[in-house]
Design a protein around this nucleic acid. Structure first.
Length: 200
DNA sequence: ACGCTGATGAAG
DNA sequence: TTCATCAGCGTT
């Protein structure tokens, strides 16, 4: 067997959110799941930054839901959306400043059979090409909100397997589903890898 | 194009 | 306490 992966450290997350977002592309998300691990490569993310960003939940200020985004970086911010789906974010920047990166799509790597079960028999190409889908595939829900992502012994963490992403591999667009946010909806804060699965 | 679904925060 | 809204998905 290969050696165990090491979780990306606090210092990785305690940076400018766009830098973290870009650097997360190509990294491996690990969901430990009983005896096995469900893993995938991050292919699409979005930045949500501060109380001035009308698309960011923290624009409502510090509330029970947004509390975790005000906390230290390197923790999971997981919320229920549209009454049915979960979304998984990683908290960024310095403690006290609310910001996060939404993980929107993954390329499945290991544990694919279990992912298909979790996704009710979906095709492999349709397992994790959306933020709600990847949470369903990896069985991520709000009970894991606030989890520490910087500990490779935790049930959820991210590591670098050496996969190289060139700046020219990264495409940008406006964020998805935030039309209500006025001019903030137009900002090109979505980052995704071309030639790899991402939500459309 | 639409219905599903329930937490969330704002209004009263 | 009600109410509109919602960082999505599957089906039509």
């Amino acid at each position: 067997m290969s050696e165990s992966p090491i979780a990306l450290p606090y210092s990785f997350y305690a940076r400018d959110t766009h830098t973290v977002a870009r650097d997360l592309l190509g990294k491996i998300l690990v969901r430990t799941y009983g005896e096995e691990s469900l893993t995938g490569r991050i292919t699409e993310v979005e930045s949500y930054i501060g109380e001035d960003d009308l698309a960011c939940h923290a624009s409502k200020g510090r509330t029970p839901r947004t509390e975790i985004m005000f906390g230290p970086p390197g923790h999971a911010y997981i919320y229920l959306i549209y009454g049915m789906y979960n979304c998984f974010n990683v908290v960024t920047e310095q403690e006290g400043f609310p910001a996060a990166v939404l993980i929107r799509a993954l390329q499945p790597i290991s544990g694919i059979k279990q992912m298909i079960v979790n996704r009710n028999g979906a095709k492999e190409t349709n397992l994790m090409n959306g933020p709600g889908k990847l949470c369903q595939a990896l069985n991520i829900d709000r009970t894991m909100n606030g989890g520490d992502l910087t500990d490779e012994n935790s049930e959820l963490f991210i590591h670098d397997d050496g996969f190289k992403v060139a700046p020219s591999d990264i495409q940008t667009s406006a964020r998805i589903g935030v039309e209500y946010a006025g001019e903030h909806a137009l900002l090109p804060w979505r980052y995704f890898l071309q030639n790899l699965p991402h939500s459309k």
